[in-house]
């Protein structure tokens, strides 16, 4: 049985990095005594796959991983047993059974993600920015220079900003997140800052990931649905 777990990562847990979060869940699954499947060999590992790594310092309301169980059990029980062994800041918010197969792993499915970005206290731009944001988005293209170890290349990120709007004190955005077009909210924000004539500040943004989506659309018409909706409670 393959299940997809959705969890939150808030508060001080944002300082626990991606690999350590994986280790955290590996141990949690053992504490919950779930019948998880292992690979063979001298040092077997759990068969699990995380959807999209979350950077240190970013909180999330919608993280995902898939895991393989050797026997079928009610998804509600899995959720309950995991939640009994979570720490403050991590809550399992849904468990759904999903179809087997490599093409449908959480990681392969990731197409887009929602973020909410606000400015840390004292890190707001010195010029008015709220009214400029829609103008920024109205540009035909938003060209950024991406530096890699070997080269620099220019990319138009406008097509990868699927949605963006002012929300509360900050900005809500839905960004492309497949491996080919993965776009970081920091990159969008830094580009916006430069566009309004501000030098981007270090540690200026508070970022929260809110959802991760698969693309269920056909014929190049994207239809983003949260990863959990590809599965069902059993």
């Amino acid at each position: 049985m393959k299940v997809r777990i959705k969890f939150t990562k808030t508060g001080y847990m944002k300082f626990v990095g991606h690999l350590d979060t994986m280790r955290y869940f590996q141990k949690a699954i053992r504490r919950a005594e779930l019948p998880v499947a292992f690979s063979g060999g001298y040092s077997p590992h759990m068969i699990m796959s995380f959807a999209a790594p979350l950077g240190v310092g970013t909180t999330s309301l919608g993280e995902y991983f898939d895991m393989e169980l050797t026997e079928t059990m009610p998804t509600a029980e899995i959720q309950q047993r995991l939640n009994e062994t979570m720490v403050e800041g991590v809550t399992v918010c849904s468990v759904r059974q999903v179809e087997d197969g490599k093409a449908s792993t959480a990681m392969a499915l990731v197409a887009a993600a929602d973020y909410y970005v606000s400015f840390r206290d004292g890190k707001e731009p010195s010029v008015p920015w709220r009214e400029k944001f829609s103008e920024f988005l109205d540009q035909k293209e938003i060209v950024v220079t991406k530096k890699t170890k070997r080269s620099e290349k220019t990319v138009d990120i406008r097509p990868f900003i699927y949605k963006a709007e002012l929300l509360d004190e900050g900005i809500f955005m839905q960004l492309a997140s497949a491996s080919s077009n993965y776009t970081k909210p920091e990159l969008v924000m830094d580009t916006f800052m430069k566009w309004i004539g501000e030098e981007p500040k270090e540690f200026a943004y508070l970022i929260e990931r809110r959802e991760v989506y698969a693309d269920a659309g056909e014929n190049r018409n994207p239809r983003f649905i949260p990863l959990e909706e590809l599965g069902e409670e059993v």
Binding site: Y12, F15, V16, D20, A28, G57, V87, F203
Partner: peptide, 19 residues
Amino acid sequence: NDEIMLKIDKAARYIGGEV
């Protein structure tokens, strides 16, 4: 504070709250 936590190596050393 966050700024210090994001600057230093392995900030999770200092958060407590472990299982």
